Simulated assay, not measured.
Amino acid sequence: MAHSSNVIAHPNDPVPVIRDRALWMRRRAFKMVYDAQLGHPGGDFSAIDAIATLYFGVLHYDPKQPELPGRDRFIMSKGHATGALYTALCAAGYFEESWLDTYMQPQSKLNGHPNRNYVPGVETNTGPLGHGVPVALGIAIAGQITGANHRTYVLTGDGELQEGSNWEAAMTAGHRKLENMTLIVDRNRLQQGAGTEETNSLDPLDGKFRAFGWHVEIVDGHDHEALFTALSAPCKGRGKPLCVIANTVKGKGVSFMENQASWHHGVPNAEQFDTAMKELV
């Protein structure tokens, strides 16, 4: 793999790089799920474009110094989408690609949910939904108090927003005017087994965040340029936390996976794997 690099300074036009990384991440994540016969490929594929935009266009970090004090923080609250997270960390240079071959195997560092004790670049252990936004809130408050320049980003699934802890955190972030905090909502409108609006309606999601004191941007969650523009916008002086609602497609990029709730945790057979690899070009 030719993607590992120290990404402290980004190119002037990172969109081609982001697009390249996102395609590699999809192909590699799907192979990981196929080899392990475990995973959450539908959610991986809806979130990959936002995560690739962060790591290869927006975040400031040094993979050789994962605990660098001035780094930006990224919390993957949607902790089951580890195919997306691990491939990003690998492509960013945090660990060798050979690690990906061990995905979900006994004693592998790459578990079904990320563990910061095993994986460099993971800021906090996630998996129980509703925990990531409160953790990101605490990090952002600490940065506000100390006057730090780093920014805190957190990505949630939309079904995850049915957890009340997220709204307690959202209320506090708005109250404290945490302009250093950005929440990305992977709005694919599907959760395990059904649509979000069938389960517990979230709309109008943008209006709810605005009512809690957030600045809201709604973007195509697979448009790398739109994602980059929204996520890299200066935060100083905004006076509000930022919520980016990324409208996405579960299973984006593979025809038989797209908009299918069954691929929340579906795993491919050999024929499906071959079909996906032909489509992901």
Rank of each mutant, 00 (worst) to 15 (best):
R238I: 14
K109F: 11
P268S: 10
S77P: 06
E258W: 08
V7R: 11
C235W: 11
A148H: 09
G57D: 05
P234L: 08
Q191G: 10
L85V: 03
A47S: 10
W99P: 01
T172P: 05
A47R: 01
G112I: 00
V33Y: 09
D44V: 02
L129W: 12
S108R: 01
K78F: 08
D186N: 13
E217L: 11
T196D: 14
E179F: 15
E97S: 13
I245V: 12
P63I: 06
R116C: 01
A276S: 07
L178H: 10
H264R: 13
L110S: 13
D220T: 06
T53P: 05
L68E: 09
D72Q: 05
A261Q: 15
P69S: 05
T53E: 03
C90M: 11
A2Q: 06
Y103E: 04
G213F: 09
H131A: 09
W167T: 07
E67V: 02
G57W: 05
Q105C: 05
H80V: 08
P63K: 12
T248Q: 01
M1Q: 02
S201T: 10
Q37E: 15
D13L: 15
R26Y: 01
K208R: 09
M104R: 03
A140Q: 01
Y61H: 10
E123G: 12
N117Y: 00
V219Y: 07
